[in-house]
Design a protein around this nucleic acid. Sequence first.
DNA 1: CGTGCGATTATCT
DNA 2: GATAATCGCACGC
Length: 219
Amino acid sequence: MTVSGEPGRRWTRDALALPVLQVAPGLLGSLLTHDGVTVRLTEVEAYAGQEDPGSHAFRGPTPRTEVMFGAAGHLYVYLSYGVHRCVNVVTGEPGSASAVLLRAGEVVDGARVARARRLAVRSGVVPGRDLARGPGNLARALGLGADHDGVDLLEVGGPVDLRHGPAPAPGEVRRGPRVGVSGPGGSAERFPWRFWLRSEPSVSAYRAARLPSRATSRH
DNA sequence: CGTGCGATTATCT
DNA sequence: GATAATCGCACGC
């Protein structure tokens, strides 16, 4: 079983059920389509469930993380900082609770629709390369939201579609610490599980996790 | 260019 | 009641 596939062909559940560190880099260059917009993935992060202090599933199943404990190929969508929706693809065998966070992509179709969605939240024209740059922006550009939590990517005739793209050249894939991950023991450095395509302008800028603000008191 | 901060709310302790 | 897998803007160099 391989993670690679023919360009234009849909991902299979078996391929997505492989270990998350294998699937995550394999998703780079793939095409995700929803409601008039197609994005070519340029940046992703792997999260390894209960073995991973950076994962929402680290402390076991909860109502929110339930989808990640299920079969590969479903979407896990969560609300970040009370403001942004972020989209993951569930990977691995049932019970592994692993998933890949979709961090950025290049809008290859439907730029007009994507731009309109972004304009609803931001004043001024969004440059093309910024349309799906950053996980919150990617979700908004694609029109994905809370309603899509649990959606099966592989359902025939389903709303969301994930296809293989032309495989990136081997030297194009880069790897480094995940963005903004705090968690016990500062898991960003210990788990360099962010993957991206070199020299892609849509890849988001790296930001370290914000340090806990010491001044807790507010009045 | 880099760094810092406020927004806003579902989720879990 | 505290926290968080972020974003865009303000400000200082």
